[in-house]
């Protein structure tokens, strides 16, 4: 009971501290902006630990963070193998193939107004569908190994990317295109020097959306059949064995992989589209 009580006291103290920090004179400094969410996150984590211990919550319902951390540290080789299988082989390769295919398709249909008007509504329609559902079909076609996961990821990222790139290629104004024309620029010069750079904010928007989709696709596809390695496989079998500390360790891996992936794409975006208003500071 004392543990639960101290959890509540800790919550009140941390909240009071955060209110002071947020409304204090230093609220607009970068340090405070970083400190406040960190305090909040740490408080939640410590409360979780204290309450789970205080109420003796069984392991099969919710393991304490310390147990998850211990499991994480113990099973690094397993987690690494799962990460390589699901993220590097499945998600990353599928992401690269899907984005490249969408890019090529977008350039191909760019010259034909008819194709664009036909494909765009179809593309946006398909992009809104629950494409994870194709996972069982693709697992059946390409087998249990990472190829089928990459195929699911390709299908999942293709349409959001296609829609974004095509929208981006429409982004230049008539005036800018006329300017290229007065310089006697060919189609490819106009594309390379004007329209592709102008499309980059849209392209990166698509790349960021797809980075999340890629990891989801690779993990969910493993629920439909996989070799005995992989994050989705580990999650579903560990759930079956009620080894929830392993499941949580796997989720920590997924969270780290997902946010680092997104962060890398966002960094490249800042570097490529430094001229865009949203990147100014």
């Amino acid at each position: 009971m004392t543990l639960v009580l101290s959890a509540l006291i800790l919550w009140a103290a941390a909240w009071w501290l955060n209110v002071r920090l947020a409304n204090g004179p230093t609220a607009h400094t970068p340090a405070t902006k970083l400190l406040v969410p960190v305090i909040f996150g740490l408080t939640l984590l410590i409360m979780w630990e204290l309450i789970v211990r205080g109420l003796n919550v069984p392991l099969v319902i919710l393991p304490a963070p310390s147990l998850i951390a211990a499991r994480f540290a113990q099973s690094l080789p397993i987690l690494w193998a799962d990460f390589v299988q699901t993220f590097v082989k499945g998600a990353l390769s599928g992401y690269a193939i899907g984005c490249a295919a969408a890019f090529v398709t977008a350039i191909l249909i760019d010259r034909s107004d008819f194709l664009r008007r036909g494909l765009m509504p179809v593309g946006s329609f398909v992009a809104a569908l629950p494409i994870v559902g194709t996972a069982p079909i693709l697992v059946m076609w390409y087998g249990f190994d990472w190829q089928s996961k990459a195929a699911v990821v390709v299908v999942m990222v293709f349409f959001p990317m296609l829609v974004n790139i095509t929208a981006g290629l429409q982004e230049t104004t008539q005036m800018q295109r006329d300017q290229m024309q007065t310089w006697a620029a060919t189609y490819w010069q106009g594309l390379w020097k004007l329209r592709l750079p102008a499309a980059m904010p849209f392209v990166f928007n698509g790349l960021k959306i797809s980075s999340t989709l890629a990891l989801i696709g690779a993990i969910v596809a493993e629920f439909f059949g996989s070799p005995i390695v992989g994050m989705g496989f580990r999650i579903s079998t560990s759930v079956g064995q009620l080894a929830l500390d392993m499941v949580w360790a796997e989720i920590v891996v997924a969270a780290i992989a997902g946010s680092v992936f997104y962060g890398v794409v966002a960094l490249i975006e800042r570097w490529v589209t430094f001229w865009h208003p949203s990147q100014r500071r």
């Binding site: 609220a27 406040v36 999340t212 990891l215 009620l242």
Partner: peptide, 29 residues
């Protein structure tokens, strides 16, 4: 303001995480 500064970064960061991965666990638990 305090809620904004504490919760918002986590809400945005959580969108980059494949939340769907915890679905089996929620069901079984």
């Amino acid at each position: 303001r305090a809620m904004d500064m504490s919760v918002m970064p986590w809400a945005i960061a959580s969108q980059t995480i494949p939340i769907l991965a915890i679905a089996p666990m929620i069901i079984v638990v």
